[in-house]
Amino acid sequence: MTAGISGEFVAFFLLSLITLGGAVFMLSFTRVVHMVVALAFSFLGLAGLYVMLEAEFVAFSQVLIYAGAVSILMLFGIMLTRHDVDEEEQDRRRRHRTFAFVAVLALFVALFKGIVALVPAGEGKLAEANTLEIGKALFTKYVIPFELVSVLLLVALVGAIVLARKEGHDA
């Protein structure tokens, strides 16, 4: 397409705008709950980007796990602890913030140079039924990591319960 802008580009632009906008708003908000809501939008935008990349199953898990579970978990974490508005700006913190900004900017410039220098590889063909392919790969080639991940999830679940349990005689 030469003159007009393709629909794919418009979709990409909107989705990345939602994603990056959510992240930037997360940085600029002062209330913690607002930050989590902004990040939930960012996660949803990422799921849209996954759909554009023909990764429907990953997009589905992204919505379920990140926009659903992790956001709610973080909200619980906020509600169960004290959360005051980020207030005073000491001199030391401002210096720390400037230093962090410069470091992150340097990292971004380095990444940008690397990405621009990247040789375009051209679009490949992915299988039509992606979820089917993922299932086949998970249960043949990646079956040992798959089982290990299930053990990891179990350990994390038990560990989280043990860590967050109330200590004392009633436990």
Binding site: V70, M74, L80, L126, N130, E133, V149, A160, L163
Partner: peptide, 28 residues
Amino acid sequence: PGIAGQVFSLFNITVAAAEAAVGVAILI
């Protein structure tokens, strides 16, 4: 191009979820 990247990101999502759960538990 292949399915390996998507499988990898699925594993990544799982580990990240475990990390978030343990992290919030430690915080509490």
